[in-house]
Design a protein around this nucleic acid. Structure first.
Lengths: 213, 213
DNA sequence: TTGTTAATAAAACGAACGTTCAATTAATTC
DNA sequence: GAATTAATTGAACGTTCGTTTTATTAACAA
């Protein structure tokens, strides 16, 4: 046999990406074989190489896609000229929503960094660092204008990111809590963590809330 | 060749464990081959099977060792009849010290869960859950006696654990901050996160401090 | 309809994998 | 010093890996 009826390059590539994210998230990149991936897509292993030259390149593409999506979502969620409190809220809640909605993709991007080649790792880390820089800037701005009380912006940013990314470790879509409830809870904890001014905070929450609805 | 001069079973086993932790942490369990591990130890691959019947069993033993060490360290650090604030401080600082001092071992235990067989995973998760239960209890006790203000003890416990375990992702021993400084910073953030009473807290910090020196 | 291109199958490549087995030597015991 | 046990080697097992090559068919354009 050869080309099958109804075969379509775009659909096949999309199916490969989706199946790869699923398999890598569940079993790990090294543990997933190209034959296993091909079987999941419903195709022979050789067909995968029409779309991705190597297994390594496939992983790299998936991670780039994830990081760009995160950057985009974050940029879209940020208020144009928000206060530090508004920006922090937007960052935290967007981060949690994005990661919960793309659990598998997030798992791949967080757990498989060591499977990247040196150059590809550098490229992905560059995007990641740029993303994290946003949070550091929010913390610094808030501290400067005295709405936050943060000792070390770098350390605090890392602590917050670890905390809010960790949601995907325990959260399941059919949990007793909804994504929105979780996002709100984590935002509350984050606010406390940065020593956000309580009264000012309430105003900001409402302001942002109104903007969103 | 066969048995080498100066060969000693106990030393070889210890060397295998140490090398395995190092290699798995750096490259991942699936990516580490038994031949690679053997080479690191300075031995042939077949020799490994004198100490561990399978690669899977090796991983399992390493994780059990890690979890038991963590349980022990945590138990040793807990004050016999401490206040929630004292217990929280002991838990957080002990956790950070332990994880920073055993970065590689922690990496293995956190990242390679999916490489465990079903039964082995169950056993390791049981230990992990028991450990996390301690923190939930501290949060509940503190909330009950109104020294903490925690909405959801389960969710907050997970958030704290993710945050304080995340230290190993960015912390390096030769960093600008010492382990003790980091532990203190994270404890401060944790206190804020659980809404710990400020004045009472100061007293507790000093009390614990005096106990320790 | 014919020629071209896109998409895939089928088979094969050498290399590496976890693991086993028999042989061999060092250390220990009697 | 002989017998036994502990520790290890070296070679081999069958399997699976990522990848390449070649042939074959579907879809499409002229």
């Amino acid at each position: 046999m050869a080309r099958t009826t109804g075969s379509d390059g775009e659909k096949t590539e999309a199916a490969i990406r989706a199946a790869a994210i699923d398999l890598i998230a569940r079993h790990g990149f090294e543990a997933m074989s190209m034959r296993q991936l091909a079987a999941e897509v419903g195709v022979q292993a050789a067909a995968l190489y029409r779309y991705f030259p190597t297994k390594q390149e496939l992983l790299f593409v998936l991670m780039l896609q994830h990081m760009r999506g995160l950057q985009q979502a974050s940029a879209d969620a940020q208020p144009v000229a928000g206060t530090p409190n508004q920006r922090l809220r937007a960052f935290v809640e967007c981060h949690i929503r994005f990661h919960v909605e793309r659990r598998h993709s997030t798992h791949v991007s967080n757990m498989e960094l060591r499977s990247l080649s040196k150059d590809n790792l550098t490229a992905v880390l560059k995007l990641r660092t740029a993303y994290e820089k946003q949070l550091r800037q929010i913390l610094r701005d808030g501290t400067e204008s005295s709405v936050f009380d943060v000792e070390d912006a770098g350390l605090t940013a890392m602590a917050i990111i670890q905390m809010i990314t960790g949601v995907i470790v325990w959260f399941r879509p059919d949990d007793r809590l909804s994504v929105e409830e979780v996002a709100r809870s984590y935002h509350t904890m984050t606010r406390r963590l940065v020593g956000a001014d309580e009264i000012q905070e309430e105003n900001h929450v409402h302001a942002v809330h109104e903007l969103r609805i």
